[in-house]
Each structure stands twice: as C-alpha cells, then as structure tokens.
C-alpha cells in the first residue's frame, strides 16, 4: 500500500510527462501518417512528378504523353496502326535486330575490359576469359551467338520488307539506308572474327581479304592493278590489313574498326533509319489493299 501511495504521485507525474511527449510528438506523427498515406500514391510525389512529368492514368492524353515525353520511347509515335501490333506483319525482325545490337554493345564493352588487341596476348586473353573470368565464357558465347543471330534477323527483316512492298513510295530512301546497314552488320561481324586470333579467325580473314588484292585497279592481282602501279605493299589489301599479311597491324585495325569505327558509322545510319521510318509515315502497314483498276497511269 505504501508503495502505491508513494508511487502514485510519481505515476501522475510520469503520466503527465507521457502526455506531454505524446502531444509534442503528435504533429510529427500526423506528418508521418501523411507521408505514409502519400506513399500509397507515389505518382503524386514531387520526386515522381519531376522524373516522369506526366500522369499515370488511362486517359488517351496521358498514354500519349507517356510515350512522347520519354526520351527512350519517343522514337515511337503516340498511336499506331492497330493491325501492325500483331506479330504476323512485321515479325518484329527490325526491332529484334536493334535489340541484338544493344545486347552486343553491352557484352562487347564488357569483353573489352578483358582483351588486349595485341598479337602477344590476344589469344591468351580469350583463354583467360573462358577459364578464369566469372561468367566470361557466357559473355563471349552471348556476343558470338548474338552476332550470328543479328545477321539472320537482318536478312529476315530485309525479306519481310521486300515481301510487303514496304520499300515503295515514300520509303525508297530508307530501304537504301537499310541495305547499307545490312552491309555494316556483316562487316561488324567479320571484323570481330579475327579478334580471338585463332586459326579459325586468321584463315577466315585471310580468305576474305585475299579477295581485296583482286580488286580491279586497286589490287595488285586484279585487272589493270599492275598497270596502276599496285604492289602487295601499296594496294587496297595493304590498307585494310596495315601490312602485306594478316599480322599484328591487322589485329589492331580489325579491333578498332570493330569496337569504334563501324559501330559509330552503324549507329549514325541507324539514327537516320529510325528517323525516316517515322518521317515516311510510320510503319508501312498492314495497309488497305489497292486494286489493279485503281492504278493511275
């Protein structure tokens, strides 16, 4: 009992303190509750709005702005032919090709960390990559098979564009840009072939570049080459290889073309290609069919 009596004033004192603290904390608590409430709708926060800038709802306006105000998505129009969304018209081959280019760029940059374009260590770097670097083998495999896949998808993309007559007016120029991209894709793959510095790459590139010495006028074994003063040391093959045989200079040149030169050129042509897809009226179809009797002469 005595304890009770003694503790009672203390208790009220403690209660008073508790109340005080509680009242003092209350505004913070309210703010916290407000913050927690706000977290349920993250799209209302300043952070969210500053990054995305548009409302995320299902109104046509927001859906359009969501695409148009995004730097990565703005290559797309806001709206698209409803039948073009299906797989059967485009086969998605152009987009897949671009996606593979991105994959190849990422894996390629990672591979560059482990590779020296020098005759002494290039082959050993590949061995190191395959046996010691974590996931190195997977990285190299993805780069190799991605490159092969990209060539196949480029070919199929070209076939699709031909079969749908998509190169016709007003898209003539973009078809020509596409042909250049086709050639660049194969050159990208070809220059990469030499880089492991193994027998396969060496002889493939030897066979490939030997054709250059038969160039008319510009190769020392081609028609009218000798008459133009071409020798093995000044013709077009020499320019490609940086020498008269496939050796360390050829390795360095292949490396620079593969990692810097051709990717920049390809990226430039891709910018033009995608820009023109939009400017020429978007994807070509599926368009309403035209009848023979509607042709104008």
């Amino acid at each position: 009992m005595a304890d009770e009596k003694q503790s009672k004033p203390e208790n009220t004192e403690a209660r008073g303190l508790f109340k005080k603290v509680k009242e003092g904390v209350k505004p913070f608590q309210d703010k916290l509750n407000q913050d927690l409430e706000a977290l349920k709708k993250p799209e209302k926060t300043q952070l969210w709005k500053s990054i995305l800038r548009v409302k995320h709802d299902e109104t046509p306006r927001s859906r359009s702005l969501g695409v148009l105000t995004n730097v990565f998505l703005h290559l797309h129009p806001a709206r698209i032919n409803r039948d073009a969304v299906r797989y059967n018209y485009t086969w998605g081959m152009g987009g897949i090709t671009f996606y593979l280019f991105v994959v190849l760029t990422l894996t390629g940059v990672l591979l560059m960390f482990y590779y020296h374009p020098s005759k002494i260590v290039a082959f050993r770097d590949i061995l190191y990559l395959e046996h010691d670097v974590p996931f190195g083998k997977l990285l190299r495999n993805m780069h190799r098979w991605g490159a092969h896949l990209m060539i196949i998808t480029v070919w199929l993309h070209m076939m699709r564009v031909f079969l749908t007559g998509s190169y016709k007016k007003p898209r003539e120029f973009n078809w020509s840009v596409g042909v250049i991209l086709l050639v660049l894709t194969m050159l990208l793959s070809f220059t990469g072939y030499l880089l492991p510095d193994d027998q396969l790459g060496f002889w493939a590139v030897t066979v490939g570049t030997n054709m250059a010495r038969a160039s008319p006028m510009l190769g020392h074994e081609g028609p009218f080459g000798p008459q133009m003063g071409m020798t093995a040391y000044n013709d077009v093959r020499f320019a490609l290889l940086g020498g008269s045989i496939v050796d360390s200079n050829a390795l360095l040149r292949a490396y620079i073309w593969h990692c810097i030169g051709i990717p920049i050129i390809t990226a430039t042509f891709m910018i033009v290609h995608f820009w023109r897809v939009r400017k020429d009226g978007g994807i070509s179809g599926p368009a309403p069919m035209m009848l023979e009797k509607e042709m104008k002469f």
């Binding site: 031909f162 003539e172 078809w175």
Partner: peptide, 15 residues
C-alpha cells in the same frame, strides 16, 4: 539499293 527506284509497280505497298 536500287530496287525501290526500279520497281515502278505501285501495287502491293504495305501488305
């Protein structure tokens, strides 16, 4: 590259 400039058939564009 020359295909679009040689094919004067206007039919079959986009399908």
């Amino acid at each position: 590259m020359a295909i679009p400039y040689l094919d004067t058939n206007p039919l079959g564009c986009g399908y």
